[in-house]
């Protein structure tokens, strides 16, 4: 059943812009991205939108719908009342380029600051082996589609532009956690996570977890475990004493601090 949807869309660029009202015909079963595409096709040919797969897997169409960071392709119109006005804006943490498109290069800079896995020597037969249970642990983090909604909602950078220099953000904390839990990696990233990536800036208010379209438990399974690993390294006298008297966790042997 078709009906007229009231849309309010942010239009503009770095020099300024505002919310503009439109009415567009939509059909049952459609998503916000469908409505915007129809708007673009019928009324605003120059509306800038970044999108690709329309299936919630490419992470391109990140925006804010009624003030909440969402993938536009995964936000069903049936979640709203037909007479409700839906407001769509670009992500408010990143510099705007035009309309709904933002410059997310902040995230690529942070990715470059993170050392990749450095694997240890191969087994005698030239292979590397990991047990299935160890492989599975990091799989949750591999689900990340890099939509950067977690980075967008994180108040550390959303509300404090100056923190961007010293804070990697939740997307990269799951990468730190994944690599730190990797049984074959030889890097010890705990110091890097605490100092360069600004793990201590996170006050675990869990918004990143709330907005993740892949349902990754970013806070519970990545950020807090990394914080606990930092505590192991720096704030736990029992671990320190264990290291001094030789009763230390053999699990971390062969790792070098980066």
């Amino acid at each position: 059943m078709a009906y007229d949807l009231k849309l309010r869309v942010w239009r503009g660029d770095r020099d300024g812009g505002d919310l503009q009202d439109y009415t567009v015909e939509v059909s049952e079963g459609e998503v916000v991205l469908d409505a915007l595409h129809r708007l673009q096709a019928t009324q605003t040919g120059d509306l800038a939108i970044r999108w690709n797969c329309k299936a919630g897997k490419c992470g391109s169409c990140s925006a804010e719908v009624n003030g909440r960071p969402r993938l536009m392709c995964m936000t069903r119109l049936s979640d709203f009342e037909p007479e409700e006005t839906i407001t769509v804006t670009p992500m408010r943490t990143f510099p705007v380029i035009r309309d709904l498109v933002t410059d997310v290069s902040f995230n690529y800079r942070k990715a470059r600051e993170l050392p990749y896995a450095e694997l240890g020597p191969r087994d005698a037969d030239g292979k590397r082996r990991m047990m299935q249970v160890d492989v599975e642990r990091g799989q949750e983090f591999r689900k990340c589609i890099e939509c950067f909604l977690c980075q967008d909602v994180c108040h550390v950078v959303r509300d404090h532009e100056d923190n961007k220099q010293h804070f990697a953000g939740p997307r990269f904390f799951i990468r730190y956690a994944e690599l730190d839990m990797h049984p074959l990696d030889t890097h010890d990233r705990r110091k890097l996570a605490q100092e360069a990536a600004g793990l201590g800036m996170c006050n675990i208010t869990k918004c990143c977890t709330e907005v993740c379209p892949e349902g990754i438990h970013i806070t519970d399974n990545a950020i807090i475990p990394m914080k606990e690993r930092v505590v192991d390294r720096k704030y736990d006298p029992l671990v320190w004493l264990g290291n001094k008297i030789g009763i230390r966790n053999k699990d971390n042997e062969g790792r070098a601090e980066v």
Binding site: H155, G200, N203, T205, E210
Partner: peptide, 28 residues
């Protein structure tokens, strides 16, 4: 921590709602 940072310190009060503080250093 999550509960009182949100409810008492408004840092942030809710997801996508700007906090009122001028600066922020987290738990550093």
């Amino acid at each position: 921590r999550k509960a009182y940072y949100r409810a008492f310190w408004l840092s942030p009060p809710a997801c996508g709602v700007a906090e009122p503080h001028g600066s922020y250093s987290g738990e550093t």
